[in-house]
Design a protein around this nucleic acid. Structure first.
Length: 275
DNA sequence: CGGGCGGCCTGGAGGC
DNA sequence: TGCCTCCAGGCCGCCC
C-alpha cells in the first residue's frame, strides 16, 4: 500500500536507474489497468525515447522523456516496478514491459490492477485529469499551519479524513495519517475545523517527521510494497500505532492502542494521549 | 458543493 | 487439505 514514502523510495531508485536509458521496445501484455491504457500515447511518448529524470507529484511518478513526453505511473495498491535481465521469465502480473537499451527490462507488475500508466506531452501535465485537482505537497514549503487551518475552517469532517483528502494535502494515506495524528496527540475524530493554529503546527511538524523518517527507511511494507530491487521497506518496524491494536502506547506509556473504523478504513490511536 | 461511499481487483488469512 | 468468506485500501465517480 504505497503512500508518499514508498513512492518516493521508488522514485529515487528509478531516477538513478533510468537516467540516460532509452526505451527500445514497449510490450503491453495487459492493458486492463485502472483506467485502461492508452497504447498509442505510450508508444508515441515513450518508445524510442530516452528518460532523463523521474519526478514525483503526490503518489504519482512522472518520468520525463526526450521528445517532450511524460510517463505517469501510479502504483495503486499492489503495483510495483521491477528491473530484471530480459531473459528473466515474465511474471503473471508483469503487464507492461519497457525494454531498455542496457539489456534490462523495466516491468510494471500489478496483481490487482489498481495502478495507472499514462503518457502525454509535458505541457499537458498541469491539466491532466489525475493531477489538476491535487493539493499541496506535505514536504514542500507551502504546507503550513496557516494554509491548512484556512482550508479546514469550514470543514465538519474528522481530521483524519481531512488529512487523507488529496485535494487538500497529498501523499498522506491511511497508515501515515494514523501515525502522525498519534505523534501529534490529536484524536482522529477531532473535527478538522476545530484545530487551533498550534495544533496544526504540531500536526504538520509530525506529518513531515513521519514521512521523512519513513523515506529514510525505505518506506513501509505491510504486504505488497517492494522497492525496485525487490526489497521490503524497513519502516514497518517503526510504526507506532498502525496495526498495533492492543499494544501499549509508546508515547504516553499508559494507554492501549485501539482500532476503530472510519469511512471504511482501519484507524489506530491511543485513547489516553490523543484527545 | 462538500463529503460519504460504492466499486474496482486479487491474494492471503482465517474459519470450518 | 480445500473451499468459502472476508479483508486490505487508493481514489475516481456517483449520488445524497
Amino acid at each position: 500500500m504505497p503512500e508518499l514514502p514508498e513512492v518516493e523510495t521508488v522514485r529515487r531508485q528509478l531516477d538513478e536507474r533510468l537516467r540516460g536509458r532509452r526505451v527500445e521496445a514497449l510490450r503491453i501484455r495487459d492493458s486492463r489497468l485502472r483506467f485502461g491504457l492508452d497504447e498509442t500515447a505510450l508508444s508515441r511518448h515513450v518508445r524510442g525515447k530516452t528518460a532523463f529524470s523521474v519526478r514525483r507529484r503526490a503518489k504519482y511518478l512522472l518520468v520525463e522523456f526526450s521528445g517532450g513526453g511524460v510517463l505517469l505511473a501510479h502504483l495503486g495498491m499492489t503495483g510495483r516496478f521491477t528491473l530484471q535481465r530480459r531473459s528473466t521469465p515474465l511474471g503473471k502480473h508483469d503487464h507492461v514491459v519497457f525494454e531498455l537499451d542496457d539489456g534490462d527490462d523495466l516491468r510494471f507488475n500489478d496483481p490487482r490492477r489498481f495502478g495507472v500508466l499514462d503518457a502525454f506531452p509535458r505541457d499537458r501535465e498541469p491539466s491532466h485529469k489525475l493531477l489538476a485537482h491535487l493539493g499541496v505537497e506535505p514536504l514542500g514549503p507551502e504546507f503550513s499551519a496557516e494554509l491548512m487551518r484556512g482550508m479546514a475552517r469550514t470543514s465538519k469532517r474528522p481530521i483524519k479524513n481531512f488529512l487523507m483528502d488529496a485535494t487538500k494535502v497529498v501523499g498522506v494515506g491511511n497508515i501515515y495519517a494514523s501515525e502522525s495524528l498519534h505523534l501529534a496527540g490529536i484524536h482522529p475524530k477531532r473535527l478538522a475545523g476545530r484545530l487551533s493554529g498550534e495544533s496544526w503546527r504540531r500536526l504538520i511538524d509530525r506529518i513531515r517527521f513521519v514521512l521523512e523518517d519513513a523515506i529514510e527507511n525505505g518506506g513501509t511494507t505491510l504486504r505488497d510494497f517492494m522497492s525496485l530491487e525487490g526489497r521490503a521497506g524497513d519502516y514497518s518496524g517503526s510504526l507506532r500505532v498502525y496495526g498495533k491494536a492492543g499494544a501499549r502506547c509508546g508515547v504516553c506509556d499508559a494507554g492501549t492502542i485501539r482500532r476503530i473504523v472510519m469511512t471504511g478504513r482501519s484507524t489506530f490511536y491511543c485513547p489516553k494521549c490523543q484527545r
